[in-house]
């Protein structure tokens, strides 16, 4: 059971790391990558938690969830990258402007 726990812990670690990167980095590409790292962390947790008793076949449902999740992540990343390109073309920088229009 301990290696499962280890995977789950690593997954949570990746999630936290990605969250940190998402907040501190200003460049949009880094933010998008950070989101992807977070996603991988969640998927790792899902896969790890799918393990049942030693020797038994793992639970297929989380795997299905991970596959769906990856599909979603790919499309989200594509949209994000496309938007980033547009933002850069429009403002000259691939960053979110600091002065918020409030």
């Amino acid at each position: 059971m301990s290696h499962v726990f280890l995977y789950a812990l690593v997954g949570t670690g990746l999630f936290t790391l990605g969250l940190y990167a998402l907040i501190v980095h200003t460049h949009l590409l880094r933010k998008i990558l950070a989101i992807n790292v977070m996603g991988s962390g969640v998927f790792l947790v899902l896969v790890a938690l799918a393990a049942r008793a030693r020797g038994a076949a793992p639970d297929p449902v989380p795997h299905a969830m991970v596959i769906t999740g990856i599909v979603v992540a790919v499309s989200a990343t594509a949209l994000a990258l496309a938007l980033m390109v547009r933002v850069r073309a429009e403002t000259g920088r691939a960053e979110l402007s600091e002065e918020r229009p409030e």
Binding site: L22, L28, K31, I32, I35, A76, L79, A80, L83, M84, R86, V87, E90, T91, L96, S97, P101
Partner: peptide, 14 residues
């Protein structure tokens, strides 16, 4: 379109 909408959308997406 335009800078406001695009950055707004980007922030919203993240």
């Amino acid at each position: 379109g335009g800078a406001d909408a695009l950055t707004g959308a980007m922030r919203y997406l993240l």
